[in-house]
Structures are given as structure tokens and as C-alpha cells.
Design a protein around this nucleic acid. Sequence first.
DNA 1: AGAGCACCCTACCAATCGGTAGACGGATTG
DNA 2: CAATCCGTCTACCGATTGGTAGGGTGCTCT
Lengths: 222, 222
Amino acid sequence: MSELDLQPEIAMREQLLKAATRLFAERGYGGTSLQRIADAVGIRKASLLYHFPSKVALYDAVLSELLSRWNESLPKLLLAAQTSRDRFEWVIHAGMDFFREDRNRARLLVRDMLDRPEHMRKLILTHTQEWVKIICDVLRQGQENGRVRPDLDPEAYIVNVVHLLCGFAAADTTAFLLEPSGETENPVKFERMSNEFMRMARTALFLPRVETPLAFGETNET
Amino acid sequence: MSELDLQPEIAMREQLLKAATRLFAERGYGGTSLQRIADAVGIRKASLLYHFPSKVALYDAVLSELLSRWNESLPKLLLAAQTSRDRFEWVIHAGMDFFREDRNRARLLVRDMLDRPEHMRKLILTHTQEWVKIICDVLRQGQENGRVRPDLDPEAYIVNVVHLLCGFAAADTTAFLLEPSGETENPVKFERMSNEFMRMARTALFLPRVETPLAFGETNET
DNA sequence: AGAGCACCCTACCAATCGGTAGACGGATTG
DNA sequence: CAATCCGTCTACCGATTGGTAGGGTGCTCT
């Protein structure tokens, strides 16, 4: 009886959060019952409701844990980068890795955008408004310096890049178009998707080096 | 009593489809009950189940109607365009308008991608595979002709553009970042989003005209 | 006139939903 | 040892779920 429960109860709450994250991401809030979550970790529904007072409380906990994880990983990257080109690569890569590392995150966020738009709006506002502003300033500086394309719309550009990132939520489905036969494994496809994504974002952002029309094989420093 | 039912029963099935489309898009499959759909059109749940044998049947009907609408609008556009630049603008615009015309479409598709990935995979395959191939061929031709950027990955590019399109599903939420104060009305924001989206897709696709580095104010013919 | 059909209804079903009440066992603490 | 607390349990709640059975009602076709 002692070898059945690996750790006594240290991780029960975390186990629940993990299982709930997966299930909410896969089947949505309405499509996931407390029963199912409880089954996933091998306890009874009533025991689940001891740890979280209600279903929405559990859901909110899942969501806020995700956001805190995001909030703790981003600022470092913003500070770490040096040149503007660096900063670009780093930030986009950060977002991409964050979603690719656990695709449930993207799914969860997209789902919440669809299920509770007004709620997500506030949430996005408080969690991203400031650094959206920062990035926009950098972009406008770049436009004055002649490094960033002058016809780029900074805010709209960022939102579209976010949309591209969210695309990874459904990448398991859409990436199928890369090679319908389905021979290559998913990681390979994601690599192609990521590379092209980065190329698109980069090309649509920077002006080519003067007098060499190709935005291709660029070296990056200030 | 005769003025209550505007048209006798001509449109009952269509009314149901319309209401179901809206509700499924807003709250998802699991989050929408037959009761609610029936209420939305003012009949009883049992009467709904006369028109559609089950919930999934209704859902499938909603989905297949959406797809047929898409299938009937696309080929025309593909044929109508003449030059390759034309074709590009037309196709992307077609997708954009299709989703913007009724944002429930985007929401519904994205939801289904999340809810039933494997199902959507088959569906996407049968409905889009052929013209993805066509577009890819055109892109590769363009690469040989020196009009399309040589480092572009055709398939991955298309998938990413699709992701961008799907972004309109959540645009009500994300477009908030354009101007957090929320003064401008949504149509204005969507216009900005669309313009920047087109600019990104275009810039990341075409090589600039030789010796003029700006992809800006281009005239379009062969 | 009357048989059939299309359409909507009321009434009901078992199953599941989120959530509560309270008992039990095993530690911790006085 | 007794008291207490924590975590899980069984048992139950009313509401709602998707779905069925069958009874009208009115229209059409013979």
C-alpha cells in the first residue's frame, strides 16, 4: 500500500493542475468534467473539490499558473538581448519556444480567447500592454533610423505576430498540409513551420541592407 | 396568431442552422446545449431533434454548410485573377473577407481544430489539398523567375498565412492591443489589422523590384 | 371524405453535471 | 492518551444533459 502512492500527498494539487491543464486544453472548459479530471489523477471528484472550491476556481488556477510562468520567462529575454535585431530574434523565439515547449499553453489561451473574450481582453491588457508599448517604441525608432520598413504598422504587426504564434495551438492539424502523406514526424514539420515563421516575421520587419536588395544571409549587429 | 410566425416554416431548418452556428462559435460544442439552440429560435428541444437526429448531426451540418460555402467561393477567385501578383492579392483577400464577413466562421473552424484535430485534419486535407498544391507550384515558379523570395518555404508559408487568417477568430480580443483605450470602433481596427496582414504576407513573399530596394508603392502587372 | 404526411408539441427517460454533508483513517500536537 | 486537523472517502442533492415515445394539428393528395 505504501508503494502505490509514490509521494504521499506532496504533489496532489500540482497533479490536479497538470491534469486539468491538459484536459482543459484538449477538450475545453465545457467539454471537461470534474469527474474526468479526478479520474485522471486517481481520486474522487469530491476530493478534487477539497483542493479547489469549484470548477471555475480550478480553471482560473490553471490559467493564472500559465500566465505567471509566461511573465517570469519574458522579461529576462528582453533584457538579455543587445542589438535591435538580436532583440527581435530573441523575443519571437521566446514566444515560439514557450508555446512549442508545451502546446497545451497555446491551446488553452486560444480557447479562452474564444470562450471569454472580454475576460481575456482585460487579462491580455494587464499582462502585455507595457511591453507591447516598449516594442512599438523600438519599432518606431527603427523606422526613423531606416532599419525598419517605413510602411509597417507597429501595433498591428505585433498583433499579427501574436496570431502567428497562436497558430501553434492548431499546428498538429494545420501542419499536416506540409506533407499530407504524413511520413515525416511532427518535430520536423514544426521546425519547418518555425523557420518560415521567423523568416516571414523578419522579412516583413527589416529593410534590406542598402543597395543589396536581398534580405538574405544578413549579418546582425547594430 | 398568424402574425407571430413570419414565414410559416419555410426557414425552420435554416433558422436552426444559423442559430446553431452562432452559438457553437461563441460557446463551443460542449458549451452549447440543444435546449439553448431551441430557445434561440423559439421551439422546443424535441422539435429541434426532429430536424436533426442528434447533436453531432446538427454540428456536422453547421460545419459542412460552412465548408461548402467556402468551396463555392474560392475557385472563382482563383480563375478570375490574371497575373501572379493579382492572384496573390485575390486569394488572400478572399480568405480574409470570408472570415471577416462572418467571424463566426473563423471561430468555428479554430474551435474544431482544437476539439477534433484528427477529424479536422481529414477535412482540411480533402478540401484544401489540391489548391495548396496549385499555389505551391505557382510559388516555386515565381522562385525560378526571381519574383518570389528564394528562401521562402512554400508549404510552410501557406500554413502560416492560414494561421494569420485564423487570427481573425480572436480578433475581437487581440485587436484590443491596437489601442487599449478602446475609442476607435472595431471595423477601424480590423482595417488596420487587415492592411498590415496583407503587407506582411506580401513583403515576405515577393522580392523587391530589381535595384529599387523598397517594396512599396508597387505597380502590379506580370 | 379520409388516409397520410410534415411539423411541433408535452411528458418522460437514464445519465451526468457541479457541488454538499458528513463519516473515516492517519498523522500531528497538546 | 485525547484532541485536532488534513485528506480522502461514500452517499447524496437538484439541475441539466442528449435523446425517446407518442399525441395532436393542419395540409395535401387521392
